[in-house]
Design a protein around this nucleic acid. Sequence first.
RNA 1: GGAGAGAUGGCCGAGAGGUUUAAGGCGCACGUCUGGAAAGCGUGUACACAAAAGUGUGUCAAGGGUUCGAAUCCCUUUCUCUCCGCCA
Length: 422
Amino acid sequence: MFQTYFIKKDKEKILLGLKKRNFNKISIIDKIFFLDEKRKKLQSHLNKILEKENIISNQIGKILNSDLKNQFEIDFLKEKKLYLKKDKIIISDQLKKIIQKLKDNLDQIPNIPDEKVKKKSNDIIFQEKKYTSILDLEKPLPHWELSKKFNLFNLSLGTKICGSGFSVYMGKCAKLQRSLIQYFLDQNIKASYEEYVLPYLINENSAYSTGHIPEKKGQMYFIEKDNFYLIPTGEVPIMNFYRDKIFSYSDLPIRATTYTSCFRREAGSYGTKVRGLNRLHQFDKVEIIQIASSENSYDSFEEMILHVKNIIQSLKLPFRILRISGIDLGFSSAITYDFEVYSIAQKKWLEVSSVSNCTDFQSNRLKIRYKNKGKIKLCHTLNGSALALPRIIAVLLENNQTNTHINIPKVLIPYTGFDKIK
RNA sequence: GGAGAGAUGGCCGAGAGGUUUAAGGCGCACGUCUGGAAAGCGUGUACACAAAAGUGUGUCAAGGGUUCGAAUCCCUUUCUCUCCGCCA
């Protein structure tokens, strides 16, 4: 959510940015200006009424404390206040309504895409061509076939326990997942991200603050009895951990990482997209975030991109990095780079990480700020996956298969304790 | 889940209807003193909204209420602590 003064200051820039997103409800901008003017007038009016009320109350106090308790004067003042009270109720009621309307309208405006972001094309900005032809098999098997062969995971068991889109990992595959989590966390910690273990359930306020309500409400599981949502990503609890904080400039950037399960309803998904481990209602992910000053957030962004790149490279997977177009850009993000690994068996690119700079859009709701030379400014927030588990597992299995076994990447062997799955 | 006690600034803590100002301390920042430092001493020290500014308004967990006037009284909710129950 933007602050109105920002929209006023940079109206042209904002209109241009919204165009990139195919955002058509431009009239909202003028509506916001209108409502804001009205809000200011009502606010001033109300303040004046309150001031008068305070003055009268204090006058009464003074009279009662003096030796001459003039009842006539007190009654006169009380009556004067009665009129003010009536006005106050009317004005504050109007003000409340205007503020709510203003907020409803502001909530609808997404973040403005960065200059580099194009309207329609997802530009490939990096491609790792190594490791794309390491298999000499004629017909490499997709991971769901490999699973049958090597007893790796079981989706129908997940369905039995819960429903479709939930999987059960077994034996060495379970350990492979745990090893990857440990490996990712270790890499993140080494890059000075502080690790946290956080709640998987969040309240309404948290979901709103990161922009998942109202924008993505339908994607989240909701527990009615206690008014909790299941986290769709670790970004939500970890960002809310910092909600309402004011950092000093020298504390920034903040780097944090967390491993969580993620829960997504994925309503409307179908077909090969959801085959095997490609898309699940519950999956595991290691998340990284940074909180930066407005001047340095793009350095943080570059740093995160490089970090994720290094991890994927260490697993020796073919991958590419895409700069996401305005139309595909998430609501809170100004710029997003997606990392996709290539599945040789599925002949498909699968997204395993998405690194975004949300600039000050998210921090305005989160009220994460910093103080520099006495001035308080909104921080910039950044988030990314390092990395999402199921698709990494799928591609690791597929790209490292032979006729008789699956090889484990070298960097993981200290974690798994075995070098192949037979 | 039951019973009781609480929630006050960055932190500790007083304030228990009324002198338009939330005391005092700690911490922090600046100044002063010093060869340099510590200790002193002095000054400052929340956030939001409105205004060109002096300033005004709101915020004592949150939301309502009583009152001319609420941090203070009443109601509801949330959270914390203690005891009991249940429990990995």
